[in-house]
Design a protein around this nucleic acid. Structure first.
Length: 568
RNA sequence: CGGGAUGUAGCGCAGUUUGGCUAGCGCACCUGCUUUGGGAGCAGGGGGUCGGGAGUUCAAAUCUCCCCAUCCCGACCA
């Protein structure tokens, strides 16, 4: 294409509210424009990149036997009610009504819809099936941010596997794991797999693919020594043992006037170190009062509590609710002798004795508490948030915390959706059984943005050839007839080899053309100037390295075309 | 949802504290001349519901009230 005919509205300054590098550069480079919060228009350049990412993902899905579908984005409420997610999804789902007052939803994902299609499967002989689409998803995110990284309307490749048994699911899951690894490698993204919480998706196991990136919003616990990695919502660590003294025969109640915090109690005469205290958090889980117990120096990870209890909605109790449940105010709360209330205790408290905790009377605490003896724990669970520097549960090395973008997520769903929606097949023994499902997602725009996050410099974007909007830009330093004739020759020659070429034929100053070419991140620039052409030469500059070499004009196509094709 | 900030031309900003004449600057845009290998120079020109509404006032971008939007931090997040 000829630059002079294209709509590539580059900006010298990024909008003031674009903070993430990908956001600023995609706007400056004329790839995207914001319509409103979380909704972006793809301009021609942005759409080309988006299409190339999608095409690359399609190739890898087809390679593992995927079949492409396109399912509706607007769904009847009934199908979401059938799976139970109409109620559990909460505010993330856009909901609307039609003229007949029927409830409708915009799809946040498509498990229900693919499962509905899959009800036509009737025999194990038809399995396995692997279905996918690249489709728009709508999510009413509380806080869209960072340009394309977190939006409310976006294209996602979502695929779904259908198998007779769990071994089949494992195979489909592994196939996706491998395909995703290839996808991220081709995108030039240093993604690594981590254990994740399955959240509202349901299911038994899930792996997220994470790319370290300051603009991300997931914290990943990572061991630099071994391969251990986990989302902070899931990861754990090994703690040094705490030696407890022999406890008294029963807890001792003692006055603690003015003590309101763990820290207060540490310094209080007769108090205890934070790791000898029990922290009691009063939470409302689906409107049921629940106590979450942690060691005094530990933080609760709310997602862990949600996962452990199967909660739909979780929030800290309000002051009045706390007082009603325990008869005391925060600062003196405890679980000793409490009955009739669900108590979830963190694993780090298991077996601990001689602890100190609130006595459920303002200004009083207990000491000498033996957890297993004095507290009726309903459930033990890992609730504690891991901190950087704690020991790796696998190898003992110090863990680090990495800020990451989640670029893909694969789930083993099991038979939940199949049972709810009636996806049944007859097995070899003639029995009806639910199909075992998996679901697998990659956000197209988010991956595009993540590449921008990880591939840029102070001049602009640096696209890998695999998804660059154009693979080569021919920069005509002047637009006189001689230069343009030479440029046209190279343009035709490269296009004949299937190369995606942009011809900068604008009547602009060389500096402007160079700066724009660098800003939009075209991997290779061929510069045609009068001096070089007089000697039969052009310059070939690689965007990533900035290195320039002089190439005979007649040799350019033969040299450059294979270089590019090898990088696709 | 809690905290913070911002809304003036396509983009970046000044002006608002202390109300005052036709709302200004840079970039971008249009015309002409010159220039032409790293975001040109000169001259001329076009473009504005000052986020919206109500109010105070002789007079509101500026003061008051309400609303809206966007961004950042947190909560939340298949």
């Amino acid at each position: 294409m000829r630059w002079s005919k294209l709509f590539i509205p580059t900006l010298r300054d990024a909008p003031a509210d674009a903070e993430a590098p990908s956001h600023a550069l995609l706007v400056r480079g004329g790839f995207i424009r914001q319509l409103h919060a979380g909704h972006y228009s793809m301009l021609p350049l942005g759409w080309k990149v988006h299409q190339k990412v999608a095409a690359l993902v399609r190739q890898e899905m087809d390679a593992i036997g995927g079949q492409e579908f396109s399912l509706p984005t607007m769904h009847p409420a009934s199908i979401w009610k059938q799976s139970g997610r109409w109620d559990t999804m909460g505010e993330i789902m856009f909901r609307l009504k039609d003229r007949r007052d029927n409830d409708l939803a915009l799809g946040i994902t498509h498990e229900e819809i693919f499962a509905f299609v899959a009800t036509e499967l009737s025999s194990y002989r038809e399995l396995p099936q692997l279905w996918y689409q690249v489709q728009t998803k709508f999510r009413d995110e509380a806080r869209p941010k960072a340009g394309l990284l977190r939006v409310r309307e976006f294209a996602m490749k979502d695929s779904y596997s259908f198998d007779v048994d769990w071994a089949g699911l494992d195979a489909a899951f592994e196939a996706h794991h491998a395909a995703y690894t290839r996808i991220f490698s081709r995108l030039g993204l240093p993604a690594f797999p981590v254990e994740a919480s399955s959240g509202a998706m349901g299911g038994n196991a899930s792996t997220e693919f994470m790319v370290p990136c300051a603009s991300g919003e997931d914290d990943v616990v990572h061991c630099p020594n071994c391969d251990y990695a986990g989302n902070i919502e899931r990861a754990t660590s090994t703690l040094p043992p705490v030696a407890d003294d022999v406890p008294p025969a029963e807890p001792e109640r003692f006055p603690t006037p003015g003590v309101r915090t763990i820290a207060d109690l540490e310094t209080f005469e007769g108090g205890a170190a934070a790791n000898r205290q029990i922290k009691t958090l009063v939470m409302m889980i689906d409107s049921e009062v629940t106590l979450a117990l942690l060691r005094g120096d530990h933080q609760l990870n709310e997602q862990k509590l949600i996962d452990a209890t199967g909660a739909v909605k979780l929030r800290p109790a309000e002051a009045a609710e706390t007082l009603a449940a325990l008869g005391a105010n925060p600062g003196s709360l405890g679980a000793v002798g409490v009955s009739g209330i669900r108590i979830v205790a963190d694993e780090a408290l298991r077996g601990r004795t001689n602890m100190t905790t609130g006595a459920n009377t303002d200004d009083f605490h207990y000491r000498g508490v033996d957890i297993e003896r004095d507290i009726t724990v309903t459930q033990w669970a890992d609730l504690r948030q891991v901190n950087a520097g704690e020991a790796c549960p696998k190898c003992g090395h110090e863990l680090e915390l990495l800020r990451c973008v989640e670029t893909g997520h694969i789930f083993k769903l099991g038979t939940v959706y199949a049972e709810k929606l009636g996806v049944m097949v007859t097995d070899a023994e003639g029995r009806q059984r639910p199909v075992v499902m998996g679901s697998y997602g990659i956000g197209i725009g988010r991956n595009m943005a993540t590449v921008a996050e990880t591939h840029h410099d102070d001049k602009g974007l640096i696209w890998p050839v695999s998804i660059a909007p154009y693979e080569v830009v021919l920069t005509a330093v002047s637009v006189d007839d001689t230069t343009m004739a030479a440029a046209e020759g190279l343009y035709d020659g490269l296009r004949a080899r299937g190369i995606d070429v942009l011809l900068d034929d604008r009547d602009a100053r060389a500096g402007v053309k160079f700066a724009d070419a660098e800003l939009i991140g075209i991997p290779y620039r061929v510069t045609l100037g009068p001096k070089g052409l007089a000697a039969g030469e052009v310059e070939l500059t690689a965007r990533a390295t900035g290195t320039t070499e002089r190439v005979a004009i007649d040799a350019l196509v033969d040299q450059l075309a294979p270089t590019i094709i090898a990088q696709r």
